[in-house]
Design a protein around this nucleic acid. Structure first.
Lengths: 118, 118
DNA sequence: TCATATACCGAAAATTTTTTCGGTACTTGG
DNA sequence: CCAAGTACCGAAAAAATTTTCGGTATATGA
């Protein structure tokens, strides 16, 4: 009752804005794959993240392009070729990715012991 | 069995491990609310985050306790009273929250103009 | 020719997350 | 007594996300 319908929650809160751009299951991993500035073809990205369904990666890449974190180049060749590359905006998120990587490595053992959590 | 991560994907990848602890819609906000080390009662947390359904906050707080990010003290009083406080482990995530806050503030305008999705 | 590769997309299924709703139990203030 | 507050929980609905499946099209190599 007290709380009302959502709308720009993500735009009200800087924290949620940032989160909303990277919280989807594979987005942070995609950023990490592209971080070095070398463009990657979709099929390469699929290979790098074999646990993810290719379709999801396509969808999330598309959203990341819309959000300006990644840019896509389509080469009008046959068979088709395209490449994704990280943008300046995407690069500006890398320090966050780095801290999360570091944290994850440092606290791995805790969660390994705690959860072979099924 | 409040929650179980199905595969150890999150344990294979430090990035996903970290993400999995904070990616739920309100967890990063909860950490931010508790960051100063002052315990808060559930009802206070509800008031701080009025956009979130109270039930969700309860569930996410419980998960965060299980994950060791937050600790809960129950005072055996009537009417009931309990408090949540951030742990050392939870505090170690604050630098990440901070970077995300900073990023969100710095790039607010871009997405303000852009928004529509999400 | 046929299997494979490239890239992409729609639809629906499956799964997960979030929200709503209604309930328990007890106390205090009006 | 009644309403409101405090904390909590189960069940189910709703919404969002992820996955699977099948399809488009073209080219190359065996």
């Amino acid at each position: 009752m007290a709380y009302e319908k959502k709308i720009p929650v993500d735009l009200d809160c800087p924290l949620r804005l940032t989160m909303s751009l990277i919280e989807s299951k594979w987005k942070s991993c995609i950023l990490d794959e592209l971080r070095n500035g070398n463009p990657k073809r979709p099929s390469e990205i699929h290979k790098c993240l074999p646990e993810a369904a290719p379709r999801v990666l396509d969808i999330q890449l598309k959203e990341m392009v819309e959000d300006g974190l990644v840019e896509k180049t389509i080469y009008p060749e046959l068979p088709p070729r395209s490449e994704y590359n990280i943008t300046e905006l995407g690069l500006s998120l890398i320090p966050i990715i780095d801290l999360m990587l570091k944290w994850g490595k440092e606290h791995f053992d805790i969660f390994e012991r705690k959860f072979g959590r099924k």
